[in-house]
Design a protein around this nucleic acid. Structure first.
Lengths: 174, 174
DNA sequence: CCGGCGCTCGCGGTTTTCGGACATCAATGG
DNA sequence: CCATTGATGTCCGAAAACCGCGAGCGCCGG
C-alpha cells in the first residue's frame, strides 16, 4: 500500500574497510548505510522498507554532515557515531531490535540470546538474528557487536572479514 | 511496514438516511466518511489503509466545516459535495478509480464496465467493483453512481436501500 | 421467433494464507 | 571438541481465494 514518495540523498566515501554508501533524508537523518560492493542488497532492502519504486536517491556531498562523522569514526574517533540521528522503517519487532543494538557499548559484544532477552523476547533468538541481518544502517547501528554464544562471529551482511575488522577497530580482541 | 502515526478528527451527524461519521485530518481534508451502523467495516478500512494501530480518532465538532457541507448536501444543495477536499491512501489502481468517480455528474449513473473503460483498463471490470467497495469516502466520492450494466443496483457498502435513497435524492429515477 | 432469466466462466487487483528460510542455541553423541 | 538435531519466532514471496461484473449460452414461456 504505497503512501508517499521518499527522496533521499546519497554520498559515497572511502574507508579502510572499503567504500561505503551513505544515504540520508532531507532532515539530515541517516537512513541507510552500506558497502559499495553490496549495493544490490541495499536496493533490495530499500524496496522492502519503502516499497518498490517509492524511493529515489539523489547524489549529494556530505549530506547532514554524516559522511564527515563516518570519516571521524574510521579515523579513530569511535564515539563519533554514538549520537548520529538515525531514522528507519521496519516492523515493530525489527525496530525494537535495532534500538537495543545502539545500547551496546563500543568495544563490547553480546550474544544473540542476550539481545533477545534484552528486548523481552528471550526465545526469539533466531528472529533476532534475522532482524539483525535486515539492519539498514550498518556500523552506526552496531549489528556487528552481536556474535554467537560460543564466541564465533557467525554472520555479517557485509562479509565476516569486515565484522572482524570493525570489532578490532573498536578494541575487541578476537 | 508502519511509517508514522495518523491522528484524525471524528464527528457524527444525523442525516435522512441514518447517522454518518465524518473523519478529517488536521488540514481539513476529508479522509473517511461512513454510516454509523457500519462502524466496524470503517475501522477495518482504516486498518488496511493506514496500518493496524497506526491511526487514532479524536472527537471534534464540524472539523474543516465538512459536517456543515454534508448537512447542506442532504438538505438539497447537491453541489455542496463537489469541491470538498478529499485525501485518501490506497493503491495506485484504487486511487485512479476513486478519482474517476468524482467526474460522474450528479443525477447520472454509469456502469462498472464504463468506469473501467474510463480509467483505461477496459477489462478490469471486476477489480473496479472491488475498488469501488473499498472507497473510504462514500457519498462525496460517489461510488453510489455506479450500477450494473443491466441497470440493477448490484451492491453498496452501506446497504442497497441507501444507494437507492441517494440516487433518488440526486434526481435519478430508478 | 423473441425476450428474459439464470447459470457458468473468464476477468484483474487485492488480501489472505501458507511454506520455508534464517547472521541461533542447548542438548546430545561420537 | 566438533557435528548433529530439534525447538523456535519472524518475515518474505508465491499461490490461492475473494469479489459491489459482464458476456455468452441454453432453456423456457409467450
Amino acid at each position: 500500500m504505497p503512501r508517499e514518495k521518499f527522496d533521499f540523498l546519497i554520498d559515497r566515501m572511502p574507508t579502510p574497510a572499503g567504500e561505503m554508501i551513505v544515504v540520508a533524508d532531507a532532515e539530515g537523518n541517516l537512513r541507510v548505510i552500506d558497502w559499495t560492493d553490496h549495493e544490490d542488497r541495499m536496493k533490495l532492502l530499500l524496496d522492502r522498507q519503502y516499497g518498490r519504486g517509492n524511493w529515489s536517491l539523489t547524489p549529494a556531498r556530505d549530506p547532514g554532515g554524516l559522511s564527515s562523522a563516518m570519516r571521524r569514526y574510521f579515523k579513530g574517533d569511535r564515539a563519533a557515531i554514538d549520537k548520529l540521528p538515525v531514522k528507519t522503517a521496519g516492523t515493530p519487532f525489527q525496530r525494537s531490535v535495532w534500538k537495543a543494538l545502539r545500547t551496546i557499548k563500543c568495544g563490547t559484544t553480546i550474544s544473540y540470546a542476550e539481545l533477545a532477552r534484552r528486548i523481552g523476547r528471550p526465545r526469539a533468538v533466531r528472529a533476532v538474528g534475522l532482524a539483525n541481518g535486515q539492519n539498514p544502517v550498518g556500523v552506526v547501528v552496531p549489528c556487528h557487536r552481536v556474535i554467537g554464544s560460543n564466541g564465533s562471529l557467525t554472520g555479517y551482511g557485509g562479509g565476516l572479514p569486515r565484522k572482524k575488522w570493525l570489532l578490532e577497530h573498536e578494541g575487541v580482541k578476537t
